[in-house]
């Protein structure tokens, strides 16, 4: 059984239905990428998983149904959602942001804070600064590190490269790949920078108007003509 299983997922905002019978799964320790045009429902899918919007259908995490559960419950079950635009606590310090990442977890967080400071030394340099004063790249690192502080089984990343310079984006994906290898954290990544995302992913889905239109191993999706034209730019 896969870690995350989604079947027949339908949902949206108020009267507007964005997702139509969407099926998707993420295996244990697997990195999966979702590609899709603007408005296809990528962000909505992540928000449905983490309980930020109400949805119908089946979503299970490790066999437990998480449909209709509040975001805080879903978070406690092991899902860390790094939202689009990062969602850092801008008034709080870098260190406080990290400690909050481990809020729902039992036991001390100091050790994990140190661990992520080691991985992202820039954050340690700025540990007492307000998160709102960090640069875009630093904020993204902070948001990801905060997500990992909960030692999640599944990390949801919504356009992690948004607004980041090419060099920083490359660095970010290398780090994500390293974290996946080292810790075995499963990741579901929504990303427009499809080349880099596919390079670290095992499988990929292509989303169009709220349903999956194709899926497969990342390397195969990368070779697909339609995908190349729409998402890869060559």
């Amino acid at each position: 059984m896969a870690l995350l299983e989604i079947e027949g997922l339908t949902g949206g905002y108020g009267p507007v239905q964005v997702l139509h019978e969407l099926d998707l799964e993420v295996g244990d320790g697997e990195v999966v990428v979702v590609l899709g045009a603007n408005g296809a429902g990528k962000t909505t899918t992540l928000r449905a998983i983490s309980g930020m919007i109400s949805a119908k259908g089946r979503i299970t995490l490790g066999g437990t149904s998480i449909v209709g559960k509040s975001p805080e419950r879903v978070a406690r079950l092991g899902v860390a959602h790094v939202p689009q635009g990062r969602g850092t606590f801008t008034d709080l310090t870098v260190e406080e942001n990290l400690r909050l990442g481990g809020y729902a977890r039992k036991g001390g967080v100091a050790e994990d804070v140190q661990r992520w400071f080691t991985t992202f030394p820039r954050l340690e340099e700025r540990r007492t600064q307000q998160a709102g004063n960090l640069s875009g790249g630093e904020q993204q690192m902070l948001a990801i590190a905060r997500g990992l502080m909960s030692r999640p089984r599944l990390l949801l990343l919504d356009e992690p490269s948004l607004g980041l310079a090419p060099l920083i984006t490359q660095d970010l994906f290398q780090r994500l790949s390293a974290i996946n290898e080292e810790m075995g954290t499963a990741m579901l990544i929504v990303e427009q920078n499809a080349n880099l995302a596919l390079a670290i992913a095992k499988r990929a889905y292509v989303l169009e108007t709220g349903s999956i239109i194709s899926s497969g191993p990342a390397s195969e999706v990368q070779q697909d003509d339609a995908v190349r034209k729409a998402y890869l730019g060559y």
Partner: peptide, 13 residues
């Protein structure tokens, strides 16, 4: 200011 952020390649084109 960053008009292409959040767009797919074909949308960027």
């Amino acid at each position: 200011d960053e008009p292409a952020a959040g767009l797919t390649h074909s949308e960027v084109d």
